[in-house]
Design a protein around this nucleic acid. Sequence first.
DNA 1: GGATTTAGATACATGAATGTAGCTAATCGC
DNA 2: GCGATTAGCTACATTCATGTATCTAAATCC
Lengths: 205, 205
Amino acid sequence: MSDHSARARRRGEELIRAIHDAVLEEVVEVGAGRLTMDGIARRAATPRTTLYRRWSDPIEVLLDALYHQHPVEEPTPGADDLRGDLIRALRLMVEWALSPAGRAVATILTDPKSVALMSEALFERVFANRGGTFTRTVLQHYADRGRFPVELLTPVVADIGEALVTKRLIDTGTAPSDEDLSAIVDQAILPAIGLGPGGPGAARA
Amino acid sequence: MSDHSARARRRGEELIRAIHDAVLEEVVEVGAGRLTMDGIARRAATPRTTLYRRWSDPIEVLLDALYHQHPVEEPTPGADDLRGDLIRALRLMVEWALSPAGRAVATILTDPKSVALMSEALFERVFANRGGTFTRTVLQHYADRGRFPVELLTPVVADIGEALVTKRLIDTGTAPSDEDLSAIVDQAILPAIGLGPGGPGAARA
DNA sequence: GGATTTAGATACATGAATGTAGCTAATCGC
DNA sequence: GCGATTAGCTACATTCATGTATCTAAATCC
């Protein structure tokens, strides 16, 4: 009877990854507010004692999991296709937002206890370049190449795409289709940088 | 010894209002996920039994409280001042979002258990015209009067202002200043309806 | 003023999560 | 191989929320 334990004993990195996965699944199911050490431990199939050896409460586990997430893919502006690159950037954002990590971030941001537990530094590390830099990268690229006036690339303008996608996600709870993303680009972002659907100045005609 | 109880006994409307107030305070402090009958009862200084007589769980209490909130003030377009009316509409929205009810809605929307408990109808009643119709009312008014082409007032365009204000609230956690609201109107909304800062077609020059 | 309704004050059994402790045994480093 | 580390297991006292039940007494209706 050498194998009364079904699975080889996990340790170090492997175990921690399992716990990180567990907490991300758990938070999507019950919300950041109802996270418990017990629930995480059960889902990760590990004793609670293992959790207490490393973290002091469920939110710590969650933040740690997010901290160790692989960074999201960055939008990489390629050919001379501003419109297409913007749509692709927003698609990347949607993808991230629907991932376990993205959903976890959403619940954290409206949970008072979680927010209180986050240091500035952690906030920076976890959220920077995720909810806010998808279209900015693309816009900066084309502004630098003179496709539109740099002074139009204000903080507000850089946020338009992300803001509208976020609102849609909250309102409908479902992923925006490619047509939705195109509409956002054509009707909100491009006009803001002086490039209406029919080209510069088209709105006048 | 007729007053061994410090306060006159509350009943009916008065008691219910106290409970509604309590649950709204409670949810802002602990989040929708950590709401408990116990916590609400303590804050309202009433026995738990009183709560169970009317509601079956904490989320029900919260939804009921929101359901009975007085509706928000509606933006009322007045003089011929599209820009000013848009800014005022967004200011109304910020005001609402920072109120107890607004904060409660924010936590509810990212709490899986709460969302699951909301029927379509209740959702409609509680959230309609709150997160989404501040600038739309104004824009519709001026579109009808021919100040800009009606076909430019798409669902996406009607969402721009609310989306950007929401994003700011989430990102910074603080209320946008009037300059911030002006920037949103000038740099995002007006361009989208063909009215750039310098008037129609200005982006071309 | 008497009957009805309903808040307020217990009390209690149950279940869940907490945080700690002690032991066993698998895995790793040398 | 041997010692150090660290999962895994079990137990336990504590705290908190739950849901129900019972009784008292204040407010209201007629």
